[in-house]
Simulated assay, not measured.
Amino acid sequence: MPDTTTDHGAKRVDPRVLRTRALLRSAALELAAERELSGITVAHVAERATVNRATVYQHYSDRDALLLDAMEDELTALVAVLARCPLVDGPVRTPPAFADVFRHVESQLVLYRRMLGPCGSARFLNRLQQLVAEEVARQLTASPAGPRNGAGTALRAHCAAGAFIGVLRHWLLAPEPVEAAAMAEGAWHALSSTD
């Protein structure tokens, strides 16, 4: 039997498992780009990935777990863009980095609409909320004006993350398209307004 541990004792994942998961994630994203999430089944993903359904279930408990894993790299990229934006004590004018956040989402518009739309994924929404709140909390902790206790930081971070996601969903689901830079301008004003 091949050794699956490294010199440091950490378990190494079989390259075949990594290839299969990559194939499944790719198939799930292709399907999500083509149709609403409610129209995607494990059988569809298995067929697109040219594996059987049992193989999908060996790697993921259900379709939503697979979709969330498939979007994890995209979420990481979004939060990396968001990290460059001053979310705490930001300037009055819209920072260019905030417009970059909307441009990033716009580059994957269909996937974000599907994941955050009425037939979207609650797990994706929860993961996005968690990641955005973590970034806001990181910025709050680094800010001299940030809350001085953990509960206050967490509460403020989740409020800001919820507001950001609400604005994002409003933009994605609007009947009339709005260009990313214009939306960023309006969103920045709405999120930072004190009137």
Rank of each mutant, 00 (worst) to 15 (best):
D64W: 06
A46F: 06
L111C: 03
D73R: 03
E74F: 15
T153Q: 13
A160Y: 12
R84A: 13
R103V: 06
E74Q: 15
G162H: 13
L168I: 03
R169D: 03
A151H: 14
V79W: 07
E47Q: 10
A163G: 04
A22R: 09
Y112V: 10
T6Q: 09
R35Y: 02
C159T: 14
A145L: 11
R63P: 03
F102T: 05
M1K: 11
M115I: 07
L109T: 10
H170N: 13
G120K: 03
S107W: 00
E74C: 14
A182I: 06
A77W: 04
A163F: 10
A65T: 05
V81I: 04
P144V: 13
A32I: 09
H44G: 07
L31P: 06
S193V: 04
A77R: 05
S38G: 15
R127K: 13
A180Q: 01
T94L: 09
A83M: 03
E179V: 04
A80F: 09
A27P: 02
A33R: 10
R156Q: 14
A161I: 00
L82R: 12
A27M: 03
P177N: 02
M183G: 08
G9V: 02
D195R: 15
M115K: 07
E134I: 08
S143N: 08
L109A: 12
R25S: 10
T194C: 15
E134W: 10
P86M: 00
G120V: 04
A27L: 02
G162C: 11
D62E: 00
D89N: 08
H158Q: 11
L173T: 09
L29I: 06
T55S: 05
A142L: 03
F124Y: 12
L29C: 07
G162Q: 12
A133N: 02
R103K: 05
L37M: 09
R114Y: 01
D100I: 06
H158R: 13
L128Q: 10
P175H: 12
L75G: 11
M1Q: 12
V17E: 08
G117I: 01
R84C: 11
A181D: 15
N149S: 12
H158A: 09
A77I: 00
L75F: 10
A54S: 13
L168S: 06
A190F: 14
R93W: 14
P91H: 11
R127L: 08
V88M: 06
L29Q: 08
Q58E: 15
V167Y: 15
L125P: 10
E179A: 08
Q129H: 15
R84G: 13
V167F: 15
R19D: 15
S193A: 11
T76W: 15
S107N: 05
A181C: 11
R127D: 07
A180E: 05
V178I: 11
C159V: 14
C85G: 06
S61T: 09
A43Y: 10
H104T: 08
